[in-house]
Design a protein around this nucleic acid. Structure first.
Lengths: 209, 209, 209, 209
DNA sequence: AATGAATGAGGATTCATTCAT
DNA sequence: AATGAATGAATCCTCATTCAT
């Protein structure tokens, strides 16, 4: 007699499948990660996959939505607790460093975007997902800047766009091995962040000047 | 009796195949564009494809190399002819606008990077391709800046990295339809370019301040 | 508290499932109509289906049995009320016209026969179903003919066989669109019927002589 | 070094696949006969199947077309050589008996019709196939009847329709086992044929009167 | 009786690649 | 160099059926 109710057990299945998919999508690519293998790695059958997700695109979008949610949560906490200007940058650096270390979100994003470019249905899903996300991030940024009296060079939504696009490109590149002497990607991110928020102070960087 | 020598005729086949592949890779994605369809669209058979390229990755890398070559050529000309500071920005704006209109290079790059992340052989090809390219671009940028007495905020190679990553992310996003009221992507690119080159002058933008 | 007793409510479920199955079997074919979709269309779940029918073949045979029952009933009434010779033909024409308009029974029969050809278990079910049906029909026909002093060219059971086979083939064909100028299928049926009952009178047909 | 030219060898593959498909379609049904098994039974790979036929429907239609061709040829020869009235019936009986013994054509026809009812593309293929076939058969019948001074009760095309439909239904039924005492199906076919050609002579039948 | 999550075998089809011509 | 038939592994997805709830 199982401890789990039906709903709980299904949630567990769903989670296991998503965990497996996340790992495999990043490792092999969405295309090469077959439903078969995802299900197997999660410890379930193909059928279980399809009774939880209508398609590979759907699990990918679920994954992305989840990441966006926790991204927003994390960032909000991070920025809300920044008491001073200097502290903000320090926190951001930590944040970007963690991004650099775990490319999951960015890789999934790129994969999804590529799918979305070619498939209108996927595109619709993507756009919906994205709009809310960007709005959330822009809101957080505006709030934090207002609190710290920082001046935004361009509208917050555009800054978010730039930073997201840049993060994606830079993280992807970092996966391929950055050349010797190249600036750490968290510094890159930080510099652009600063420039767009229009401040003259330089980040105390670990990179060679 | 053909006018073309054997070499010429082979070059022609190669070009036709590359044209077809370029179009289809962008349209359908590298994965969905089958060798069969590429060959057919080029007016040849699968056999012709494999007589000219060892694999799909190889034609993709050839495509990318070609784009990089013409990219460098174009940019060099563009910047070499910039007489004044203001003229430089104007030229850059035109340049970025054309990028925004034709996502071919960025899409191909992303596809190739994704392949490279997962496959060491492809990665090796990519890195070689890229290093030279980045060095070329950095050289061009340094030269132009020196000529115009512009100050680079960070090393030229890192700026090139940032701009390439940003362009990739932003172009990809633009393919999915940018929201109403978002800044045109050439303005985004221009602003970041300026900020990294450390100048206080604002671009004369079509975007809302 | 429900008005329906348990038995009634189950009968209702059964009926709903059979209605859904009938429609879908005709529309999509037995094979393409999945249990899932049948149940859903009936407003129930897969489980309800399997609580009422052991398999897809079983619901098909139930459907067929039902049709045969009502077929026999309808035909008996039709023929029993035929007072005169001419009246009989007129009634038969009406009958065949209704067949032509609703191919349900014939389509289900063909599907079942095809299943029966390949599966001995299904075959056994089919044969039992069929034998009684043919006997019933032959009985009705003999009675009617006796009453009207009509002479059967060959044994009634064989006539029933011929007419059933013909109806099946002709109805199936009519579903595919009969060519311009082809005789209406009720006329075709009527002519063969007459010829097998050995009468010289011609049906008053809408078809060209 | 193979004796067969490329074309010959492909024709051989095609034939082998069609032979296998014919057998398996009749034995298991179109639906249950998987491409996998067809290819295997033919001694080729699945890929060979798809490089010869675009789909299962296509091989079925090729099969049907082939049967129709040889059907027409056979019937033409049969009827053209009938010198006398009695001889014609005798030949027809032989012909129908062979039909009864080998249900291949009729089974394939039914399967194809069922597919055609549900799929417009298949329907288009079917109708084209069928129209020519029916016209051919009607032509043959008219010629033979003219030569032998036989009177057709209804237009030849309609007779062909009736006989085809009847043959289909009757052959299908015969596959399920005809009951004891039922008339042989060649007699059934013959009687209807005679009645529709309007002659008073009775076939010398092996069946009980 | 009814639910619906999970199974897992199977199916059609695609595709990079090979190789005899 | 180019053709295109053939390979055969791989992929996504469907579905009848089971069973714990």
């Amino acid at each position: 007699m199982s401890r789990l109710s039906r709903t709980e057990s299904q949630a567990q299945t769903r989670t296991a499948l998503m965990d497996a998919a996340r790992t495999l999508f990043v490792q092999l690519g969405v295309n090469a990660a077959s439903v078969d293998v995802i299900a197997e790695r999660a410890g379930y059958s193909k059928g279980a996959f399809y009774s939880n997700f209508a398609s590979k695109e759907r699990i990918l979008s679920a994954l992305l939505a989840e990441h966006m949610r926790s991204y927003v949560l994390g960032l909000r906490e991070l920025l809300d607790e920044a008491e001073s200007f200097e502290n903000l940058w320090e926190r951001l650096r930590v944040y970007y460093r963690s991004k650099a270390a775990d490319p999951t979100f960015e890789i999934l994003s790129v994969e999804f975007q590529l799918l979305a470019v070619r498939n209108p249905d996927v595109r619709a899903i993507y756009l919906e997902l994205c709009q809310e996300h960007v709005a959330d991030l822009a809101g957080i940024m505006e709030l934090a800047c207002a609190r710290l009296n920082l001046h935004l060079l361009i509208p917050a939504a555009d800054i978010v766009d730039v930073l997201a696009a840049l993060a994606q490109g830079v993280v992807l590149q970092s996966q391929l091995g950055r050349p010797e002497g190249a600036m750490p990607i968290e510094d890159l991110m930080l510099i652009v962040s600063r420039q767009l928020i229009g401040c003259e102070h330089w980040p105390t960087s670990t990179a060679k000047p």
